[in-house]
Simulated assay, not measured.
Amino acid sequence: MSNSLWRYVKNVQKMGFKNYVRAMWYIGDAKGGKFVGEDQFGNKYYENLNPEEETPGRQRWVDYTQHNFDASQLPPEWHAWMHHIRKDPPSSDFQMLQASRPKWIGPFRENLSGTRGAFKTYSTTQPKFHAWDPKVSQRAPSASA
């Protein structure tokens, strides 16, 4: 039995059938790992540091709560952990727990481009060119009638 097939079977046994189906639907892989934390939106973060089970660079992943998920739904502190910028997750990182967010930085919101909630500019200037609007006048009655 190959190493990747054995890893797959072990992870399916650890996860259970329901979690296996959800993982295959959302991330396309049967992964098993340690639960690391959860953000304010309900996204759950996992990590597996065993080099025999996971490929380097793929040992951290997120389980989104929404069905239509997007990478912009990760808060900045979790994004830094996911991309190996920070070693410890925000839920256990002492510096992240002690630091307070400055008041001039607003609350985190996902990128809404391409959705109904996207920002649309409103222009108050008059257009330089106007489309031609034909004006139809009444015909004169014919003299032969």
Rank of each mutant, 00 (worst) to 15 (best):
P107R: 06
D88C: 00
R116M: 04
G114N: 05
R116D: 11
H84N: 10
V136R: 09
S113Y: 07
H83C: 00
I105M: 15
R116G: 12
N111L: 01
R116N: 12
R116E: 08
K103D: 12
I85L: 05
F94D: 05
D93V: 02
T121L: 05
G114D: 04
K135I: 13
M96G: 07
Q126M: 12
Q126A: 14
W104A: 12
M96T: 09
F129K: 11
F119A: 09
W104G: 06
K87P: 00
G106I: 04
A131Q: 15
S123F: 00
T121N: 10
K128Q: 10
L112Q: 14
D93L: 01
A99P: 01
D93T: 02
R116I: 02
H130M: 06
T115C: 05
G106D: 15
R86W: 00
H83D: 05
P102V: 10
S123G: 10
W81R: 01
P134V: 04
F94E: 11
S91Y: 03
G114E: 04
S113A: 14
F129A: 05
Q95F: 06
A131V: 13
R86G: 02
Q98E: 15
P107F: 02
V136H: 12
T124D: 11
K103M: 03
F94I: 13
N111T: 07
P134M: 07
H83L: 01
T125P: 03
P127I: 03
S91C: 05
E110F: 01
S123Q: 11
F108D: 08
P107M: 03
I85P: 01
R86E: 07
W132P: 10
P102Q: 10
H84T: 02
H84C: 00
W132F: 13
D93H: 04
K128Y: 08
H130N: 12
L97M: 15
S91I: 03
R101I: 09
D133H: 12
E110S: 13
M82N: 02
F129E: 12
S100C: 08
R109Q: 09
W104T: 10
W104R: 11
K120L: 06
A80M: 06
S100M: 08
P90S: 02
Q126H: 11
P102L: 03
W104H: 15
T125G: 11
E110W: 04
P89L: 00
A131F: 14
N111C: 08
K135F: 07
Y122C: 05
P134S: 11
R109I: 06
T115Q: 09
R116P: 02
S123I: 02
G114Y: 06
F94M: 04
F94T: 10
W104V: 07
Q126P: 11
S92Y: 02
A118K: 13
S91K: 04
M96E: 13
K120T: 13
S91H: 03
S113H: 10
F108K: 06
Q95N: 14
T115E: 06
A131I: 13
Y122S: 10
P127N: 08
T125M: 11
A118S: 14
V136C: 05
V136G: 02
P127W: 03
A131K: 15
L112S: 14
G106A: 14
